[in-house]
């Protein structure tokens, strides 16, 4: 059975390419969300296995949303991503309950597979 994914980012351009990248890696992208509230609703409705989550969102931060999602009944594996590097984001990243962090410029099928295991 296919592994489902949700892309959360406020940039439509990034969402478009991220969807294709995930699909090329073997995930089934079930939805996209542009902010924290939409993302939470989508997670509750669609229960994706993986959430690719931007750290900076218009209404919340990816770190906060990750904590909320971690307490959901069927918690998805969360991959945080950002246009900034891990060093720029500081120590808060290390304390997050997300599966891991991949900077946007390092986002490749290989990096995703390494973090999540192969999708199919």
């Amino acid at each position: 059975m296919a592994v489902t994914a949700l892309v959360v980012d406020d940039h439509a351009g990034f969402r478009r390419f991220a969807r294709r990248l995930l699909e090329a890696t073997g995930f089934v992208v079930v939805d996209e969300a542009e902010d924290g509230a939409t993302a939470l609703a989508a997670v509750r409705a669609l229960r994706p296995d993986v959430v690719l989550l931007d750290v900076l969102l218009p209404d919340t931060t990816g770190l906060e949303l990750a904590e909320t999602l971690a307490s959901e009944p069927k918690r998805p594996a969360i991959v945080l991503t950002s246009s900034r590097s891990a060093a720029d984001l500081g120590p808060a990243l290390e304390q997050s309950s997300a599966r891991g962090f991949i900077a946007k410029r390092d986002l490749t099928p290989t990096a995703l597979s390494a973090l999540l295991g192969t999708a199919s």
Partner: peptide, 16 residues
């Protein structure tokens, strides 16, 4: 920055 990052993803896909 966001546009360049999207461009990077596009290059990745093209290579694949």
């Amino acid at each position: 920055q966001q546009r360049l990052l999207s461009l990077g993803l596009a290059l990745q896909l093209a290579r694949a």
